[in-house]
């Protein structure tokens, strides 16, 4: 469906996309995951025909996205940041305006219903909540029934409830048979939503796989975390059974990476009682995409 090869983009002398390649299958949700400034938006903008690459090729549904932009724009839908709407137009007027740019559009009623905006039809954009704005931005992007949809950080700035609601909409888009490309810096979002995730850092794609596949590729899949103010004890922890790594987290929390959760725990409890370590805040968890990112780049995805 989508083939990106050796894509390069420079701003002045600075290279922001450094020769990336990937492909996306039809009717899948593909996510570009990475921190701000990794080159996700620039990559998406080149795929949307908004920026000209300095090298490489993009093919979307058989269309050369670099050379044949006008044809490309008929089959893709684009959602940018929520500020890219006219504040003084109503929901209905916004949909009508964007609908007028295409030959064929879906019925307004159907769109309003699908995006839960029927009640807000006559409300001005400036009076909408963050979640409603995002839903409208996506509604506008699918008004012409596009085959491919680009969502740029669709849930940034939304509260958890609005975020979950938007995830349902993204699933719905895929279930209608569309291919969805989205960018995000929330690892949880990528994990829940995406069929395939490309991890981006500093203009490169470090790894591409399904979220489960990426986590499976980690050297250890479980984490044991507890409060341990005394850093001198970290060295001893590496000798516990199954531990592959000991990492310091924030707030005096230490994290043990292990592939054998039960064996490590079995060893940990007597070690702690010997040294009068109270194991405050003890918890175990499975590895996430965050851990994948940390292992691949040595940096955290969030937090900074």
């Amino acid at each position: 469906m989508i083939f990106v090869k050796n894509l390069v983009k420079k701003y002045g002398s600075q290279m922001v996309v450094k020769g990336i390649s990937f492909m996306v299958r039809e009717k899948q949700i593909f996510g570009l995951l990475g921190p701000n400034g990794a080159g996700k938006t620039t990559t998406m903008e080149m795929m949307e025909g908004l920026r000209t690459p300095d090298g490489g090729s993009i093919e979307i549904a058989g269309i050369d996205a670099v050379k044949n932009r006008s044809e490309l724009k008929r089959i893709i839908g684009v959602q940018l940041q929520s500020t890219s709407l006219f504040e003084h137009l109503t929901v209905r007027e916004s949909l009508q305006l964007y609908g007028s740019f295409y030959r064929k559009t879906r019925p307004l009623k159907e769109i309003l219903q699908a995006f839960d905006l029927t009640e807000k039809e006559k409300a001005r954009v400036k009076h909408l909540s963050g979640g409603q704005r995002q839903r409208l931005a996506i509604a506008i992007a699918v008004i012409h029934d596009p085959r491919v949809i680009f969502l740029d950080e669709p849930t940034t700035g939304l509260d958890p409830q609005a975020r979950r609601r938007l995830w349902d909409i993204v699933f719905q888009l895929r279930d209608e048979g569309r291919t969805v490309i989205l960018s995000t810096h929330y690892m949880e979002e990528a994990e829940v939503l995406c069929d395939q995730v490309g991890i981006m850092s500093q203009g490169k794609i470090i790894d591409i796989d399904s979220p489960a596949g990426l986590i499976r590729g980690l050297s250890s899949k479980s984490r044991i975390e507890f409060v341990l103010p005394d850093h001198r004890l970290d060295q001893e922890l590496t000798r516990l059974k199954g531990v592959t790594d000991v990492v310091r987290e924030e707030n005096e929390v230490v994290s043990l990476h292990t592939d054998h959760l039960s064996r490590t725990l079995h060893d940990l409890v007597p070690w702690a009682s010997d040294r009068s370590v109270p194991l405050m805040g003890l918890r175990t968890r499975s590895a996430t995409l965050e851990d994948v990112f940390l292992q691949k780049t040595g940096k955290r995805l969030s937090g900074e």
């Binding site: 949307e48 940018l80 500020t83 709407l85 964007y98 740019f101 295409y102």
Partner: peptide
């Protein structure tokens, strides 16, 4: 600045 023009550019307009 607000990306309205870029959004319009993403259509066949």
């Amino acid at each position: 600045e607000r990306g309205i023009l870029r959004r319009l550019q993403g259509t066949p307009l």
